[in-house]
Design a protein around this nucleic acid. Structure first.
Length: 426
RNA sequence: GGAGGCGUACCCAAGUGGUUGAAGGGGUCGGUCUUGAAAACCGAUAGAGGGUGCAAGCCCUGCCAGAGUUCGAAUCUCUGCGCCUCCGCCA
């Protein structure tokens, strides 16, 4: 959530920043509400102060045998006078809240305005494989011929947009996750396994609601409402909601493995074959809580970590600095790490690293006390480290050989019983 | 799912309608004592959000959350949430 004070004192600055995200923000309405709010607040509070003063004097007046009834009448009168104003104030505050909470985060100053077309690749790793002397298969064919994924049976037991990892496919998926987890542990991150069913407030704090209410799976008949997490970020950034941390505990570095559940309504299912986009995919997610001046450093750290994971696998990827309009709704800054998918001849996101600055912290009252006892909002950051559903196909496609086999990256072998190559079963 | 209990400041806890911003204890910080430490003793410290003001300050909110009763609520009523205990069911 954007700071209301900032909107009030520098409306043009906020307007300009949001414009870079393609968001047309007209502050006039809010500014008028701020004025209205202040007016009402002054009236209501001074009236309330008078009521309190009179009420407090009751025991004294009683003792002196004064006219208590007259006092009662006076206070009642004041209270009646205040009632309408209190209702009005309440409404104004709700209106302000409603208007501010839908606003996206403001992008960092250095980001280009506009959408995808203005994303800037800033680093490239590895070489796009050449496949000399044979026609490469796509990952769907490979997964099938190697016996890794069963799409047919997935459709039978679940539906389209899903898959079953079978045999060595399941082993490979698990090896990837283990490789990620082991790396994060070695880097000193704390492992978390959160519940997958979360309450509405968690979605709000993460900034997924109200905007993305339609994109998650809601549990039927649950009161209060519950949804299944679309990413472990939702759980991790809510861990310290409504808490006051102390500066020496920061930064907090967490990671969690969870499947992610998304409706993906209206997505490009047809061109994205196989496991490029599904209703459920596995992801290891990293989250940091930092001080309000520590998030830039943390951001670089998370980007580096995500890069290192792909580099460990030896996969060709690019690092993409997103333009303001392509950054996530709640984020001030996002870098995507995109792995090369030969069959599609494009780079597909496997990790999205973002700095929310204090946007989520304000929504969830996540604060810390500095060494002088002063309160601050934390900064929160998140980054995939990594999502498997695109690493898996990229790995198959990039590492395929002329004979249809696929070389397993060395870092994964310890998690696959030393196996070094996947061979076709038919 | 059924029955009961609880929710007060960093922690424990008193408080059941009136100057209660909230007793007491622990903790923390400072001091006395001590070669040093412990103990003992003395002192300090009670969160947060908001309004107003140059500031000191003053004011509003605030004892899980919300609504209500009352001139006045931590204290009474209702609702919700959370936790605990017992019973049932169950991976």
């Amino acid at each position: 959530m954007i700071d209301a004070k900032l909107i009030e004192t520098r409306p043009d600055y906020v307007k300009e920043a949001l414009a870079k995200k393609g968001w047309d923000f007209e502050p006039e309405g809010l500014l008028a509400l701020f004025v209205k709010r202040r007016e009402l607040l002054k009236e209501v509070e001074s009236n309330k102060a008078e009521q309190n003063r009179l009420s407090k004097s009751v025991p004294q007046v009683k003792k002196e045998g004064g006219d208590v009834q007259a006092l009662f009448a006076k206070v009642k009168e004041l209270a009646a006078l205040n009632k309408d104003k209190e209702v009005e104030l309440d409404q104004v505050e709700k209106d302000i809240q409603a208007q501010i909470e839908v606003l996206p985060n403001m992008p960092d100053d250095d980001l280009l305005a506009g959408g995808k077309e203005n994303n800037t690749p800033i680093y490239h790793f590895g070489e796009e494989p050449k496949f000399e002397g044979f026609t490469p298969k796509d990952h769907v064919e490979l997964a099938e011929s190697l016996g890794l994924i069963d799409y047919k049976r997935a459709a039978k037991i679940s539906g389209s947009g899903t898959w079953v990892y079978t045999n060595l496919g399941a082993r490979l998926e698990w090896a990837l996750l283990n490789y990620f987890i082991t790396t994060h542990l070695n880097d000193g991150y704390e492992m978390i396994l959160p519940p997958h069913i979360l309450n509405e407030q968690s979605g709000f704090t993460a900034g997924q609601f109200p905007k993305f209410r339609e994109d998650v799976f809601w549990l039927e008949g649950q009161e209060p409402k519950k949804f299944i997490l679309p990413t472990a970020e939702t759980a991790l950034v809510n861990l310290h909601r409504d808490e006051v941390l102390s500066e020496e505990d920061l930064p907090k570095r967490y990671f969690a493995y969870t499947p992610c559940y998304r409706k993906e309504a209206g997505s490009y299912r047809t061109e994205e074959r196989g496991m490029i986009r599904g209703y459920q995919f596995d992801k290891v997610e990293m989250v940091q809580y930092t001080t309000d001046d520590g998030s830039d450093k943390a951001f670089d750290e998370l980007v580096r970590k995500a890069q290192a994971l792909l580099e460990g696998l030896g996969l060709c990827y690019q690092l993409n600095k997103l333009a303001a309009g392509d950054c996530s709704h709640s984020m001030a800054r996002t870098y995507d790490i995109e792995v090369f998918i030969p069959s599609m001849k494009i780079y597909k996101e496997v990790s999205s690293v973002s700095n929310a600055r204090d946007y989520q912290a304000r929504r969830g009252m996540i604060r810390y006390k500095d060494k002088d006892g002063k309160m601050h909002f934390c900064h929160t950051l998140n980054g995939s480290g990594l999502a498997t559903s695109r690493v898996f196909p990229a790995l198959l496609e990039q590492n395929q050989q002329a004979d249809g086999s696929v070389i397993i990256p060395e870092v994964l072998r310890p998690f696959m019983g030393g196996l070094s190559v996947l061979k076709p079963i038919k």
